[in-house]
C-alpha cells in the first residue's frame, strides 16, 4: 500500500475490484477530481452545477467500476462518463437542447481546407482559450476531447452518438472554425 502512488489507475482498480477498500477508492477519486471538475465547469459554466455534477459523476463511476472492461484506459472511461453526464445535463437546457444532435456536415464542408494540427496546437494558450470561447460549444467540446483528453475517434463517437466518419468531419469543421475565429480575433498574427 505504501507504493500505491506509483501504481497506474488500472493497477489500483484491479486491487480495488479484488478487495474493495476505501483506500484504493480514495486514491482514484483524488487523482481525478480536478480533471472531472475542470471538464464540468468548462462545459456547464456554472460553479454550483459543476459541483453537483462532480458528485453525481463520481457516484456513477464508482457504482459502475465492476463494468469497466480494461479495454480502454481508465482515464478515457472517466472522461467519457464525465462528458456524457454534462452533455445530458446541457441538453436539458433550452439553449443546448440540440447539442450534438444537429445533422452533421454537408458537401460544402468537404471543400474546407484541412487545418494543420500543428497550427492549432501552437496557438498561445490564452489566445486559444479565447478562440474556444467564441466557437460553438459542440465544436469546442470535440476539440477538447481530441486534443486535451486524447480521446480516440471511436471514444468520441460513443460519447456524442455519431458515426466515426461524422466525428472526423466534426473535428475538421471545428478546427476550421477555430482557425477562422483566431484570424478574426487576432488579425495581425
Amino acid at each position: 500500500m505504501g507504493n500505491i502512488k506509483k501504481l497506474t489507475d488500472e493497477e489500483i482498480l484491479k486491487l480495488y475490484l479484488e478487495k474493495p477498500s476505501d483506500h484504493y477508492f480514495r486514491v482514484l477519486h483524488n487523482r481525478y477530481i480536478d480533471k472531472v471538475y475542470s471538464k464540468a465547469i468548462s462545459l456547464l459554466k456554472n460553479e454550483a452545477m459543476a459541483e453537483d455534477a462532480v458528485q453525481e459523476i463520481f457516484l456513477k463511476i464508482f457504482l459502475n467500476l465492476s463494468k469497466f472492461t480494461f479495454r480502454s484506459k481508465f482515464s478515457t472511461w472517466v472522461y467519457s462518463i464525465t462528458y456524457n453526464y454534462c452533455i445530458d445535463l446541457l441538453r436539458k437546457q433550452k439553449k443546448y437542447k440540440k447539442l450534438f444532435t444537429s445533422e452533421v456536415d454537408n458537401q460544402a464542408d468537404l471543400k474546407e481546407d484541412e487545418v494543420n494540427d500543428k497550427v492549432l496546437l501552437e496557438i498561445e494558450f490564452q489566445k486559444l482559450g479565447k478562440v474556444l470561447e467564441k466557437i460553438p460549444l459542440d465544436d469546442k467540446t470535440v476539440l477538447m476531447m481530441k486534443y486535451k483528453d486524447d480521446l480516440g475517434i471511436r471514444d468520441i463517437s460513443g460519447i456524442i452518438g455519431k458515426s466515426e466518419s461524422a466525428v472526423k468531419m466534426k473535428i475538421k469543421r471545428a478546427k476550421a472554425k477555430a482557425r477562422k475565429t483566431y484570424n478574426k480575433l487576432f488579425p495581425n498574427e
Binding site: 471538475y37 475542470s38 494540427d117 486559444l128 477538447m144 486535451k148
Partner: peptide
C-alpha cells in the same frame, strides 16, 4: 496529433476543485 510535442490544449481549463 502534431508532429512535435507542443500542445497548448493541455494548458487549458485546468481548474482545481
Amino acid at each position: 496529433m502534431a508532429d512535435n510535442d507542443k500542445n497548448n490544449f493541455k494548458e487549458l481549463e485546468n481548474f482545481e476543485a
